[in-house]
Structure formats: structure tokens, C-alpha cells
Design a protein around this nucleic acid. Sequence first.
DNA 1: ATACTAAACGATAATCATTATCGTTTTCAT
DNA 2: ATGAAAACGATAATGATTATCGTTTAGTAT
Lengths: 164, 164
Amino acid sequence: MAVKERMDYIKKQLHSQSYKLTPQREATVEVLLENEEDHLSAEDVYLLVKDKAPEIGLATVYRTLELLNELEIVDKINFGDGVSRYDLRKEGANHSHHHLVCIQCGDVSEIEEDLLGEVEVKVEREWQFKIKDHRLTFHGVCSKCQREKDSTNEEVGRQTVDQL
Amino acid sequence: MAVKERMDYIKKQLHSQSYKLTPQREATVEVLLENEEDHLSAEDVYLLVKDKAPEIGLATVYRTLELLNELEIVDKINFGDGVSRYDLRKEGANHSHHHLVCIQCGDVSEIEEDLLGEVEVKVEREWQFKIKDHRLTFHGVCSKCQREKDSTNEEVGRQTVDQL
DNA sequence: ATACTAAACGATAATCATTATCGTTTTCAT
DNA sequence: ATGAAAACGATAATGATTATCGTTTAGTAT
């Protein structure tokens, strides 16, 4: 399974920067590996890690997630609901990972495809800006909500599209 | 000047939804019109509005910005520095407004051009997602910091690229 | 294996942006 | 002019995140 290899890779990353490998950090990474599609908040991670290591503190979870973000192992993202969420980066792919946020049901789905290749070339050329990373999120109506609206013909109150 | 016309448009928008036009709201919109390029936070707006209307309260500024966001007159955005920022939408253009965030000096500049036309067509077709809006931000090194790095040859500590 | 030291920990207090509350004031249609 | 709904200012409450601090631990050198 790739899970073990990815865990080993992350451990190596920690060691190579002379960070210590603690059971708390290991348990946190495990939780992230087991819930990859879920856009977990720090609180979410905390509750899940407590199953594996009940003595862990919330502050440690925040510290670990911050560390993993600095090591570019996770992306810290914000969908405008007041909490930061943490996504494990796919191996290799370092930044082609976009989101579709439905403004009616609130669901978030992902696009793995790299959509911005040509766009990045253009931006780098025309604005002399060396791109290291990007965030792209679309707000709109998902296919399920489109179908429901068609069938009920009932106008659904439009939710606010706020922060990215 | 276009400022007056935009103000009138915004007043009309408020009235058409039977919101009341108060001096506080007018002063807030004035401040936004006079500081369009500045990505103001609620606190920033509050301090600027106090010059025009010293009796205004911070809560009113938050309420007004929230209202303007719902009316799609401003965009509420998040650059990962812990505060929401409010950008007046350009007239007509309803969502082609992107950001370049420098991970060294922290400067934010804007791209007005619509970069995503073809990308949106593709996303709508392939994911059956009806796009209403999007947020696109690039993180990287601005041209000024690239030049400075070249000349000093000194390694600059990498800042965290976090939310948004 | 033991001892050491910096790093990491848990508990919890502090911070800070944002939101809710509430009694008063104001807008605007009647 | 009047009255009701909306908006206001002041400020308390909330809630996510960060800082503090005394204790514990990982990893290295003895």
C-alpha cells in the first residue's frame, strides 16, 4: 500500500529538518492519510487523533498541522466558513488541486487535473511573477442541486458566496 | 466622474431591495470608493469611516460590509493573514479579478484580465457544475523581490504560504 | 545503557476577529 | 406628522487560534 510509503516519506522529511518524530505527530499524519478527501479542520483532526492517542492536546494538533504546512506536506485552506482546513498534498503533484464549492448545499468537491498550465505561463511572462503555488476555487451550483432545482421548480434561497 | 455614478448605482441597489440608506452606509461606501486598490480590512474601513462620521461603531461597519457582500457590491476575500478584506467590484466585470501574493514581501497586486474563460467552459462541461464565481490567487515571488535576491545573493527566509 | 539538552508536550489562559444582544434612534412609507 | 421596521452604538459573547509555562521526551553524545 502507498500509505506506508507516504508515511515513511513524511517521517524522512521531519528527520531531514531535525524535527523530532513523536507519537503525536505520527498519529496526526495517520489521521490525515486515512481521511484524505475530507478537508478536515483542526478540531476534526483533534477528535480523530484522540481515538488513537487519547492524551493528545488540541494545541499539539495545531502545532503539528502548522509544521506540516511549513514542510509543504499539507495545504492550509479556507472555504470561508470560519475555520482553516488541512489537505494532505498528493505525492508529486505539488499544486494542482482545485475546489468546487456549491453555494446551495455547501458540498466541496475536488478537481485533481492541472487546469492552469497555460495560464501560469502567461502570468509569469506578463507580470514577471515567479509562481510557487496557487489557489483556485469555483463557487456555483453542483450537478445534484441543479437537478433538484429542475424537479422541484422551487426557488432556493441563495447562500452567500464569501471568502475563498 | 464615475465615482458619483457608482455611488448612485449602489444607493439604487440598496433601495431596490428595501434596505435603508443611512449616513453610515453612505460613508462606508465612500471610503470603499476612495480606497479601491487597498484590500481594506473591516478595521481599516472603520478607522477611515470615523474621519467622515466619528460616531460610527465597528459593528455597523461589519454589518454594512456584510450587506454589501450579499448585494455583490463588494467581494469578501482572505489572504491568510487572519482578517477578511473587502474589495469593491468593478462595474460590469463580475468576477475577473485575481491576486498575486508575494511570499517574500507580502505585497498583493491585482490582475484585472479574465484568465479563466476557457478553463470555466471546461469545468462546467466536464463536472456539470454551474459556475457563479471564482477565486484565483497565485503565491510566488514578485518582480521586485526577484531583483533584490539577484543583487544581494542573500537567501531570504521563506515565509509560509498559508490560507486562501 | 545513561545522561543530557533542546524540542515537544498538555493544560489552559490570552488574543483577536467577528457576531450577537439590547435598548435607543432613525428612516421612510403611510 | 406618525408609527413600525430597520438600523444604530456600545459592548458582551463567541470561537478559532496562539502564547505561556512547567513537565516530559526524543535523539545524541558520553
